[in-house]
């Protein structure tokens, strides 16, 4: 089935305590190459039928209205997942 991916991240200026905790753990494990971690969300919306411009517009709308909270998060991407032969 075609899939639309919606990616949401905490706004740039917002403290991301979960990401900070992971960054701290990486530092303790000696992974000093990675200086920061931010954690966001990826939604995979399975579409009944082909992905059209209208479907993408619907997905963008729910991404703004429901899947993210514009006060604390930004929608980073809304796009159709590339078809892959072995995907579920």
């Amino acid at each position: 089935m075609p899939t639309i991916v919606v990616e949401v991240m905490p706004t740039a200026e917002l403290l991301d305590p979960a990401g900070k905790a992971v960054a701290g753990a990486l530092a303790r494990l000696g992974h000093t190459t990675f200086t920061n971690v931010r954690i966001g969300k990826r939604f995979e919306l399975t579409v009944d039928g082909p992905v059209t411009e209208a479907t993408l517009a619907d997905a963008r709308k729910i991404a703004e209205d429901m899947l993210s909270n514009q006060v604390i998060e930004d929608v980073i991407g809304v796009y159709e997942a590339p078809a892959s032969g072995d995907s579920a």
């Binding site: 905490p10 917002l14 403290l15 305590p17 979960a18 900070k20 905790a21 909270n69 006060v71 604390i72």
Partner: peptide, 11 residues
């Protein structure tokens, strides 16, 4: 109400 509530800063 305006604003939002996020994870406690100390985690």
């Amino acid at each position: 109400l305006p604003g939002g509530l996020i994870r406690n800063d100390h985690g």
